[in-house]
Nucleic acid binder design. Sequence first.
DNA 1: TTTTGAGTTGTTCGA
DNA 2: GTCGAACAACTCAAA
Length: 483
Amino acid sequence: MTRSATIVWFRLDLRLEDNPALTAALERGGAVIPVFIWAPSDEEPWAPGAASNWWLAQSLRRLAESLEAKGSRLVVRRGGVLETLRALIRDTGASAIHWNRRYEPRVVERDGIVEQALRRDGVEVGTFNAALLFEPREIATKVGGPFKVFTPFYNACLRMPPSAKPRRAPRDVPAPSRWPRSDAVASLGLEPKVEWAAGIRASWTPGEKGAARALKHLLDDVVEGYPAGRDRPGIEGTSRLSPHLHFGEIGPRAVWSTVKAYAGVDARGALARGGEAFLRQLVWREFAHHLLFHFPHTSDRPLRPEFERFPWRRDAKALSAWQKGRTGYPMVDAGMRQLWTTGWMHNRVRMIAASFLVKDLLLPWQEGARWFWDTLVDADLANNTMGWQWTAGCGADAAPYFRVFNPVAQGERYDPEGEYVRRHVPELSALPARFVHAPWRAPAGTLYAAAVGIGESYPRPIVDHGAARTAALAAYGRIKKNR
DNA sequence: TTTTGAGTTGTTCGA
DNA sequence: GTCGAACAACTCAAA
């Protein structure tokens, strides 16, 4: 006796492996109807940005292909989620719907409404965890509250029982006798009308297979040297898993168990071979989700209320120079141009570029968060929010206010040969290493030989870092509590 | 309730 | 060039 069909509503879980909503649908028996619904207005003011949308289009195509290889399809629709699901239930006779949970405040709210309405309709609703090692409510302090400091959060995670082993992708996915209509991915308008995605396309392979390849690359070439390599933007020292994790093309459980098995344990019981350092980063992703879930206003407003009074400047010209990578500080500009051309920025450089916007230019962190949101292929509300608030000093466990990154010193320390700068700021590529992070210090003859014209081919610094630092410290001093 | 120890990623200055 | 201290006070989390 086969049961009636189950709809699997795909969202940020665009994979077949270790996908609990899908697995449970298969275990339930009967046909499975995989669905994706494009409803960006539900997520305003944080509807996905342009780079995210590009990635999404590719990832949906890859998912559809994988489903077709299993004898199934991906039904794509646009518009109101509840109306669409109800129509699909009506058309297919499905009696159940499964999805994997998301944790962004607006989405939690929307999903709650959808779930209640469908249950009232008599539909069986099942929701699952695919996106996190530990969901926001699973980790709590001894008195039951959310954590605001990373280290105790991390320790609490390590005390948790290990999560279940990731499930394999199904062999096949039983199709319904008749498929509901589907829109084409191309009709969703996710891809640019003007061709700007060439650099992004050249840098990434969206989809579950691309994610698996990135994980293999992490094990083969990255983890071993991760503790130091992750801070070197000139080399491939990071996992580059972030967009794959954001779109759920791979799950954190699979990453965790694979890295752990690879790294092994040293004599003192600690994870060896860079494993600890990498998995810590994975827990930072968990912490970001924990924070946004428990402090849902923080995507727009500071966690520390005194920062509501911070004297941010308005300066459209400075903001535009930062966005375009024309601040005159090579490390900042290289980062901003890497972001623009590849849809991604190395984490070390994100901190440098973000610190520059917030502390050197005294522009509001929300402006930076907005720009990153639109340009990053890994734009993730939880991670983006936590990162910007950390840099600005207004978030959980944030950098102390006097911690102002020096873009020249950071460049010299983490990109000593200037490879990273040369790659992304080609007009400086002929400068010797000792001037590549501060070209204005180079003698005229050196500049001439390298064909660099300060204020011509490459901008003069738009602010003096030393003076900017003093101004930032003064501004932060003014919002201190006891003054 | 009170106490205690601690807190991702830095910079600058002076010895 | 290298090293340690100062930068400031606050809040968190657990005992």
